[in-house]
Write a protein that binds this DNA or RNA. Structure first.
Lengths: 137, 137
DNA sequence: TCTATATTCCACCCGGAGGTAGTATATTGC
DNA sequence: GCAATATACTACCTCCGGGTGGAATATAGA
């Protein structure tokens, strides 16, 4: 019942990049500032780049930048890229086609929470995270 | 964002045992009826036995039985035994001491869902699952 | 007593998430 | 041109959840 470490890292990085305004952010600086393993983060940022969430610039003084408007980037998209959303959409007991018509024993106790989390992931944008009270990064 | 397979199995087994009334249930019959790997389930039931959720009877015609009242067995206890509750209680971004006073960027969007899930796990009993509409097992 | 059927315990395998190391490649600034 | 610093790519390692196999032990019932 938790995000992958990779999803945590991706969200923290994007919030950090967005908050420190600026332009390019090197993996080295992000790794140092956020305490995320350098090599691991490099591969993760490369993935976010290939999926069009960020843009990379090679060479000295290079790095990554967020290209799209922050109001356009939703948590669900980030999580989907990094770990997929399947586990957030599936039946809590692992059944196929578990719904109101043919529920599992936990359906009535779980489906509300599941729907709420999915709705939160799909509606919350990077802009909201950046503007949130949360100071930790 | 999902239960361990072991937690799924444990919940399904306990509901199945409780619903089929009866007394002793062999691992073999549970494995066959629920489609859970025999050896794997054997070890899981042994764990539930050592934690006092069920009682084992060895020898021919042996098996497991639920000893405590169904109203007394809560989802949180089952999940805690099988996989622990840490991942349900921790900060979604992995920070220590993330709370209202010192929140992470996702705190305001996540904490409500986290509290709701924990409250559901602690309040829902095996008796409620047994009586629920959910026919799947 | 003997056999069938049950739990119990041990060692092992597999795949994926998380993490590390080394090297190739791109590019800025001297 | 060349050194410094960046991303890009490949290969590997470790840990753990899930799963399998086999043998030891317990015991009801013929």
């Amino acid at each position: 019942m938790r995000l992958y470490k990779s999803s945590e890292y991706a969200i923290r990085c994007l919030v950090s990049m967005a908050r420190s305004g600026g332009d390019l952010h090197s993996v080295k600086s992000l790794s140092d500032n956020l305490g995320i393993p350098y090599k691991f983060l490099g591969r993760l940022m490369s993935l976010l780049g290939s999926e069009g969430l960020v843009e990379s610039v090679q060479g000295k003084a290079g790095g990554y930048r967020i290209v799209r408007p922050l109001e356009d980037i939703r948590l669900a998209e980030i999580v989907d890229i990094v770990e997929g959303l399947e586990s957030y959409e599936r039946c809590i007991l692992g059944f196929d086609r578990c719904d109101e018509k043919n529920p599992c024993p936990m359906h009535e106790f779980w489906s509300g929470h599941k729907d709420g989390i999915l709705e939160m992931l799909h509606s919350t944008t990077l802009a909201q995270l950046v503007q949130s009270e949360g100071k930790k990064i």
